[in-house]
C-alpha cells in the first residue's frame, strides 16, 4: 500500500485551513487581525487557500498605532488587493483624541499597550464575534497555554485558569451576546515553520524583514529605529547600520538585528542559526516576567 502520510508543513497547513473554515462556519462576523507581520500574512495566505475560489469571507482588521513603519502600510494595501480582501483600519490616535486612552510618557513610551483599548472598542463597534490572530504557542510562555478557539468575556478578558478543554478536531465556539472569541489558526507552527512555509510558498513580505540600511540607536542591547517621535536619552546616539527586523510591530518596541540576510533563503539560514528567540527583540515582553500574560488577560492580541 502507498504511504499515505503528510509532511509536517502540509499537516500544519491542513490543520490551519480547517480552523479558518470552522471560523467561517461557526461565527457570524469574524475578522482577521492583520498587523503586517509575517504571522498575520501567513494566516491571510492560508485564508485565501481555505476559501478558494471564493473570496475570503471576512475582512482584515488593522489597528494602526500611528507608529507603524510606512513600509508596513504600503505592504498592507498591496497585499490586501492581491488576495482580494477588504481592509478595515482603526486608529489608536482616535482613541487618544476621544480620551479613551492616555499616551504613555517618558523614554520607553509606546502605544503598543494602548492598542488593546482601540481593538476592544472596534470589536464592539463592528460587532465582531471572532477575531482571527497569528499568535503561535512557541512564541511566549503564556501563549503556550492558549487554545485554538479562545473565549473572551464581555470585557474582552482572557481567563487562562478556566479555559475550555479542546479535544480532537471539535471546537466549541458557543458564547453569549457581547462575548467573543480569539482564534489562532497557526497555534502549532514555530517560527521556523513560518519561515520555511513562506519560502516554500514564495509569499511576498514587507521589505523590513530583509537587510537594509537604517538610522538606529541602541537601547537595552537592542537597535531601535530612529523616528521623530522616538525620545532619545542624551547618551543614545544615532548611527547607520545594516539591519533587518525579525518581527514587525509598533516602531517604539520593535528591535532590529544587525544582518545582511537579503533573501528568504538567507533569512531561513539566519533563523536556523539564531540563538535567541524572536520575541527577544520585543521590548514589550521585557517589561516583566509575566508581561505577555498580563496584556493577554486584558484583551491584547
Amino acid at each position: 500500500m502507498k504511504n499515505y502520510n503528510l509532511r509536517h508543513l502540509q499537516e500544519l497547513e491542513s490543520e490551519s485551513i480547517f480552523i479558518l473554515r470552522e471560523v467561517a462556519a461557526q461565527f457570524e462576523k469574524p475578522a482577521l487581525l492583520f498587523s503586517g507581520g509575517k504571522d498575520s500574512i501567513v494566516v491571510s495566505h492560508l485564508a485565501r487557500k481555505a476559501f478558494h475560489p471564493a473570496k475570503i469571507p471576512f475582512p482584515l482588521l488593522h489597528i494602526d498605532t500611528g507608529h507603524n513603519f510606512p513600509e508596513t502600510l504600503e505592504y498592507r494595501d498591496k497585499w490586501a488587493e492581491e488576495i482580494g480582501a477588504k481592509v478595515i483600519v482603526k486608529y489608536v490616535q482616535d482613541s487618544i483624541d476621544k480620551g479613551r486612552v492616555q499616551e504613555e510618557k517618558g523614554y520607553n513610551a509606546s502605544r503598543n499597550a494602548l492598542q488593546t483599548v482601540t481593538l476592544l472598542d472596534s470589536i464592539e463597534e463592528l460587532k465582531l464575534d471572532a477575531c482571527i490572530g497569528g499568535a503561535r504557542r512557541d512564541e511566549e510562555k503564556a501563549r503556550a497555554k492558549e487554545r485554538f478557539f479562545s473565549h473572551r468575556d464581555e470585557f474582552g478578558q482572557w481567563d487562562p485558569k478556566n479555559q475550555r478543554p479542546e479535544l480532537w478536531n471539535l471546537f466549541n465556539g458557543r458564547k453569549n451576546i457581547g462575548e467573543h472569541f480569539r482564534v489562532f489558526p497557526i497555534s502549532n507552527w514555530t517560527e521556523m515553520d513560518v519561515w520555511q512555509y513562506i519560502l516554500a510558498e514564495n509569499i511576498p513580505l514587507p521589505s523590513l524583514y530583509f537587510s537594509h540600511k537604517r538610522k538606529v540607536f541602541q537601547r537595552d542591547g537592542q537597535w531601535l529605529a530612529d523616528f521623530d517621535f522616538m525620545m532619545k536619552k542624551p547618551t543614545e546616539t544615532v548611527e547607520e547600520k545594516i539591519i533587518r527586523f525579525r518581527t514587525i510591530g509598533d516602531i517604539t518596541c520593535t528591535g532590529a538585528v544587525e544582518s545582511t540576510a537579503s533573501t528568504l533563503e538567507e533569512i531561513v539560514q539566519e533563523v536556523a542559526a539564531s540563538r535567541t528567540t524572536e520575541r527577544g527583540t520585543r521590548a514589550d515582553d521585557k517589561r516583566s516576567e509575566a508581561a505577555m500574560e498580563d496584556r493577554k488577560k486584558q484583551g491584547y492580541f
Binding site: A142, A144, K145, K161, N188, T190, A290
Partner: peptide, 22 residues
C-alpha cells in the same frame, strides 16, 4: 515548561501546555 504566573508561584502546572521541537 512553566507558563502562567500562578504556575511559577506555586511550582505546579495548571493547564495543558504545548511545546515544540524538531
Amino acid at each position: 515548561t512553566d507558563g502562567l504566573r500562578a504556575e511559577r508561584e506555586q511550582g505546579i502546572t495548571i493547564d495543558v501546555a504545548y511545546r515544540y521541537f524538531a
